[in-house]
Design a protein around this nucleic acid. Structure first.
Length: 162
DNA sequence: GCCAACGTTGGC
DNA sequence: GCCAACGTTGGC
């Protein structure tokens, strides 16, 4: 049985990887995630075709910057085995990988970023994981209604993105 | 740059 | 298994 699509939000610091980088590359392995809950979402729940919001965190104006799509389910994150990588993990082995990464493909860069401030003002988005106090999860689920609300807020809802 | 919230580590 | 100390995240 085919399960319906899920929706996600991926945080990234634009200084290290931005929506422009994703646009240029077309697709990328979402590696370097070192949080177990985020790992579990990628490994266990994100599937081909799921829709993704790309969020720029930690900048002057945190905002949703674009849209992406899960293009392949998770495989072991190669950086955990790489001694030269900042994400190297000595407890991981090829037999027992610890960290996983899904692949996402570029869908769209928003012509105007949707600022966190705007999200915070939306009554409909009150329950969003992103807006919860102290929320730091870098891979987080988004409800379908929340996703639709956000698409509408981009004022481009007439265009079929997906 | 500050600092609150969070997750992880490690001594006991 | 508890929990204090520490490091990190991320908005402001």
């Amino acid at each position: 049985m085919k399960r319906s699509l899920r929706h996600w939000l991926l945080k990234t610091e634009p200084g290290s990887y931005s929506i422009d980088d994703l646009k240029r590359q077309g697709k990328t392995r979402w590696d370097g995630v070192r949080n177990y809950q985020a790992r579990n979402y990628m490994r266990d729940s994100m599937r081909l075709g799921d829709r993704v919001l790309i969020y720029h965190s930690n900048g002057k104006a945190p905002a949703i910057a674009g849209l992406a799509t899960v293009s392949a389910s998770a495989i072991p994150d190669a950086s955990q085995f790489d001694h030269m990588s900042q994400y190297f993990d000595k407890k991981a082995s090829k037999d027992r990988p610890i960290w996983w990464a899904t692949e996402v493909k570029f869908t769209k860069k928003l012509s105007t970023e949707l600022p966190l401030k705007d999200l915070q003002m939306s009554k409909e988005l009150e329950g969003m994981v992103l807006l919860k106090r102290g929320s730091r999860l870098s891979v987080q689920p988004v409800k379908e209604e929340e996703f639709d609300t956000i698409l509408k807020m981009t004022s481009q809802e007439k265009k079929p993105y997906y």
